[in-house]
Design a protein around this nucleic acid. Structure first.
Lengths: 344, 344
DNA sequence: CTGTTAGCGCGTTCAC
DNA sequence: GTGAACGCGCTAACAG
């Protein structure tokens, strides 16, 4: 690899001159500048940013820790981070924990992998990243997972009790969906929840109830079935709801997988979606588009979450962050497709 | 941040001693070693790998260029790279081109973004990556996209006419599928292709024909319909195939989307899958699992491709690569689900 | 005003 | 177990 010294020699100038051409071109006369630039281009010289970073104590590098890059939400978040970072001249060092492969389904027990995380943050810090974004595989409380770090840290798709996090607004999303159904004159709206110990599930339930309440509709416990996020429970719950004597005219499944189960159930019962019953999912996963009918579902602002995380982090790094930020919640967007119909 | 000097001072030794404790502990007496280690732990000191890299001229960093990290195949490939890299003490600097957002669907016209790629490789080189893995968004010839680089480069999910690439074996995968159907006594096997200008499509067609040939079955042009990879053409082609007087007993759609279209077509014609017609897809995309019936499809060795790319690259970096490697093709694995039945 | 000299950043490693 | 040169680019201070 060519070095600045060789360029200097070839151009018959000092290394300082070359450096100025690169960093403060105005300081150098047009003539020498062009001569130097020509030689740089000819030799394909790229200044060693390692050396530069050592000197200026700035790496312009962000560390990303993903719990699992193969989880559907993660790539889009990274994409958002990446776009914002690039625009602001930051680069990305990626650490993928491979959570599921490493510790299976016990990921809720954070103690199992604090050691792994400590090692990873150590690497990132020794590589002088200026800030860290932690992307959860699954939206939950990860307090205690990362020790207090000497660089700013932002959590997304998860949160802690003391750090800045970026997520989407489950409550408002569920409210939005329920409102949408109510406006189409649905008054009997079934809901299939995920596991009840998840904050996401609780928040969505709140949004659902708030919308009902605003329309003076009493929450009917018969219309709520508890699922576990998997298609099978959507099927079971769907069957129960649709077999009710006063069956709901619309069903809100708290994720797309369970909505798929409802489609199965409706099919078996000879019910047509959306004619006989409307259906809404959540997540806008790829599969929701290939269901028959195409599923109306809630899209997550993943890209925006990534971009927002990067924005906050870079602001923190450069000490221009308003410090009142804590839990940022971005709005979701409804994707209206073919599984919802209106009532007279 | 603490430096080696401060540690040295606190421990009353020279910086050299601290360095040896870190890198060649045996050279230092147990007594001083432990003293130094204690202080390192107390102060939470992390050696600055930037400075180390500058000195030892080794960053242990691999650059990954992804054409688009949001494309379904990419995260799993990165996961594979990551796993292998981590085991071998390499780290990952990620550059995401965001191909589709940047230049829309004209990605086949490589000239449109050579400039972007040149800039990205420049950044990676200046950050002293020791090798680069280029991950295509779409398997195709990308010759001329990257200038000859001073570090080893491996292409995956794409290829060039002169560099090492890692892909999967389309021909053998299609052969495997066709063979599977033939063994179940299917003799009339329809095929729905993707766009014919793709090498992948050509190779799969070859595999299909080779299997038929081995079973002395003449290729029947009526049984081949050309699609464009989208669900709609799968539907159209499926309808045509299934309306034939001697309709095929099995259909091989060259991707899962088009297989979805065949499911639509069969449904409309009142044909049951797999009773009336068997169906196989390709890609094992998430949606294939949520079709009714669950689709039998060909899984791609994405993780293995990533790992293999990393392995080759790291071997190249350390000059222990057999140089006869060129186009590595990994085997695919059939996922047998519910869309295929046997014939008497 | 243009361009040069020289020391610095931090950890490594060789000669002593 | 230590002193000191070294890697490469940056930049303050300075000379022409």
């Amino acid at each position: 690899m060519t070095t600045i010294k060789e360029i200097a020699k070839l151009a018959n100038v000092s290394t300082a001159t070359v450096s100025y051409v690169l960093n403060e071109p105005d300081k150098i006369s047009a003539e020498t500048r062009e001569k130097v630039i020509r030689i740089i281009e000819q030799t394909n010289f790229k200044p060693n940013s390692i050396a530069k970073s050592l000197k200026v104590k700035k790496t312009n590098t962000l560390g990303i820790i993903t719990e699992d890059i193969t989880v559907f939400n993660t790539p889009e978040i990274i994409d958002g981070i990446d776009e914002y970072a690039e625009k602001n001249n930051y680069y990305i060092l990626l650490e993928n924990v491979r959570l599921f492969k490493r510790i299976g389904n016990n990921y809720k027990d954070t103690s199992k992998f604090v050691g792994v995380i400590r090692e990873i943050t150590g690497v990132l810090l020794s590589k002088q990243v200026e800030g860290i974004i932690y992307i959860g595989a699954h939206c939950r409380d990860v307090s205690g997972l990362i020790d207090k770090l000497p660089v700013p840290t932002v959590y997304t798709y998860c949160y802690t009790d003391s750090d800045i996090s970026v997520n989407y607004d489950d409550e408002s999303a569920a409210y939005q969906i329920t409102k949408h159904l109510l406006k189409l004159n649905h008054k009997q709206i079934g809901i299939i929840t995920g596991l009840m110990d998840s904050a996401q599930c609780q928040d969505r339930l709140k949004g659902y109830q708030r919308a009902l309440y605003e329309h003076n509709i009493l929450f009917n416990p018969e219309y709520m079935k508890v699922g576990n996020w998997e298609r099978e429970t959507g099927y079971t719950a769907g069957k129960e709801l649709l077999s009710l004597s006063n069956r709901p005219t619309a069903i809100f499944a708290l994720n797309d997988y369970m909505a798929g189960g409802v489609i199965d159930a409706a099919g078996e019962l000879g019910l047509n979606i959306p004619r006989d019953v409307s259906l809404v999912g959540f997540d806008n996963r790829e599969c929701s588009y290939s269901y028959t009918p195409k599923l109306t579902t809630m899209g997550l602002p993943l890209n925006a979450m990534g971009a927002k995380s990067a924005e906050i982090l870079i602001n923190l790094i450069n000490h221009r962050q308003k410090d009142h930020l804590k839990n940022v919640k971005l709005k979701c967007e409804l994707f209206q497709r073919k599984s919802v119909g209106g009532l007279l």
